[in-house]
């Protein structure tokens, strides 16, 4: 019997999960959801953020970063394509909400599928010509795409150019749950639901054929194609699913922020989300969730040191990446078949 290394959180968690029976698993999942769901009530505790309201910080940046990082992780982590223009899909979702929300009677929930669809269409349109490229070349093209979208928004009349779009409506109430600006816990719960849905989707796909195809493409694309995998199709799917998540995040962001402008969708956002993925552990869902949550939360938590804030933030990044070059929770490299684990589930 091997001595368990409790500092290896990834394996510890995986062992715990594998050895648990169905009731224990259900309890773990429900318990975690409940704990995270109660987070907005922790504003008075040590977790409190000094200047920004705690519940607002939980929605943006924390929740949004987690959601977007999960989306980007499908592209970067699962199928190994470096996408530096991810913010474009976020922007497309946000502007769909802003434009339709201010010009039509559609509410947030009705616009959500439209925003997701438009982001996916953009993903396919960008993907078909560019996903034949690999590595650095793909990175440059996506970088350009992100900038193109921002510049179009900056220079179009329907998007009101640099002024941005104001008076975006809030989502309608969900029964007794009211969306309020001064108390954003309902927003947080919606983001949480979207995050859970995304995690469910990724986990489902990962253990089945699409996940295997992505994994094969990431590890050796030529070998994958010669083993009969339609690599372009799966790369486009990966790109499009990532875009869908980004678009969904954008719709909710616009509906929560009530005002958006092109300057919110710069390259910085793409880089920051990518940093969340790398920091947490490329390809590992839980790593990405934790990484994005920390990187979203930290700058607001240490706001009291004002100007030195970004310095401290950068320092944390550098130190952590030095000690854990594969991220906080690295990708699974355990000798357990993914498929086998699914068989027991």
């Amino acid at each position: 019997m091997k001595i368990r290394n409790y500092w290896n959180l990834r394996d510890f968690g995986a062992n715990l999960w594998e050895n648990a029976g169905r009731p224990v698993r259900v309890a773990i999942v429900l318990g975690s959801i409940l704990l995270v769901g109660l987070l907005p009530f922790m504003g008075g505790s040590i977790l409190a953020t000094p200047i920004a309201a705690f519940d607002a910080v939980l929605v943006y940046p924390v929740g949004m970063f987690v959601l977007m990082s999960l989306g980007l992780n499908i592209v970067v982590g699962k199928s190994g394509m470096l996408d530096l223009g991810y913010v474009a899909f976020f922007a497309i979702g946000a502007y769909t909400m802003a434009y339709l929300g201010t010009t039509t009677n559609l509410n947030t929930w009705e616009i959500m599928p439209i925003g997701i669809a438009l982001a996916m269409i953009a993903g396919v349109l960008l993907g078909i010509p560019t996903l034949r490229l690999r590595g650095d070349y793909l990175a440059i093209v996506t970088l350009g795409f992100g900038e193109i979208v921002r510049l179009i928004l900056l220079n179009s009349t329907w998007s009101k150019g640099p002024n941005g779009i104001a008076n975006i409506p809030m989502p309608p109430d969900l029964g007794p749950l009211k969306f309020e600006l001064k108390n954003q816990r309902v927003f947080f719960w919606v983001v949480m639901a979207m995050i859970l849905l995304t995690i469910w989707m990724i986990r489902r796909l990962t253990v089945r054929r699409p996940g295997r195809a992505w994994e094969a493409i990431r590890q050796d694309e030529d070998a994958a194609e010669l083993m009969g995998i339609h690599t372009l199709k799966y790369k486009i799917w990966s790109f499009t699913l990532g875009a869908a998540v980004g678009g969904a995040a954008g719709v909710l962001f616009a509906s929560k922020n009530l005002y958006i402008a092109p300057e919110m969708f710069t390259l910085n956002v793409s880089i920051l989300i990518l940093a969340c993925v790398v920091f947490g552990g490329i390809g590992n869902i839980w790593g990405v969730v934790i990484g994005a949550a920390i990187l979203g939360y930290l700058p607001d938590r240490i706001r009291f040191i004002s100007d030195a804030r970004l310095l401290a933030f950068g320092l944390v990044l550098v130190v952590v990446m030095n000690f854990r070059p594969d991220g906080l929770l690295p990708r699974k490299k355990r000798e357990k078949a993914i498929v086998k684990r699914e068989a027991n589930a």
Binding site: R212, A213, A216, Q219, D220, M227, I229, E335, A337, K340
Partner: peptide, 16 residues
């Protein structure tokens, strides 16, 4: 595909 198990390597091929 080095980061996949032997079985996964073959399963991925059977997907064709």
């Amino acid at each position: 595909w080095g980061d996949m198990t032997a079985l996964e390597n073959v399963i991925t091929a059977t997907d064709v």
